[in-house]
């Protein structure tokens, strides 16, 4: 009975460490951990994990316009021309799939923890 709280504490610590590792990996991939680059007809990274309350920004680096449209209609950007950005604040945890409505093969995911 005395051991149980200790185990809980260890479990909580592990989650905190894993969470920290996750964000440091994201930081290596791009200087801004809440940014999705739209380039060469792809969302990079294709899957981004952020904490609840984070604002994610998409920036179009192509000569061709792209859009960011949630599969559940939660968010929808207008057409983003070259170097234009779109941001959305994710307040609730979950997995959010999105696509470019102009080039629907372009797909991506935001995981909110």
């Amino acid at each position: 009975m005395v051991i149980a709280p200790t185990r809980l504490l260890i479990a909580a610590l592990s989650i905190a460490i894993l969470g920290g590792m996750g964000s440091s990996i994201a930081a290596e991939a791009d200087s801004d951990p809440s940014k999705v680059v739209v380039k060469d007809f792809m969302f990079t990274p294709m899957s981004l994990t952020v904490k609840a309350g984070s604002t994610v920004t998409w920036e179009n680096m192509d000569d061709e316009p792209h859009t960011v449209v949630s599969n559940t209609q939660l968010f929808r950007s207008g057409a983003l021309d070259t170097k234009e950005t779109f941001s959305f604040k994710f307040t609730e945890t979950g997995t959010y799939h999105f696509t470019c409505s102009i080039h629907p093969r372009m797909v991506g995911t935001i995981v909110v923890q």
Binding site: P65, T67, S77, G78, A79, S101, I102
Partner: peptide, 8 residues
């Protein structure tokens, strides 16, 4: 076309 329906 899809470019004509890309407004939010």
């Amino acid at each position: 076309g899809e470019h004509d329906t890309s407004d939010a």
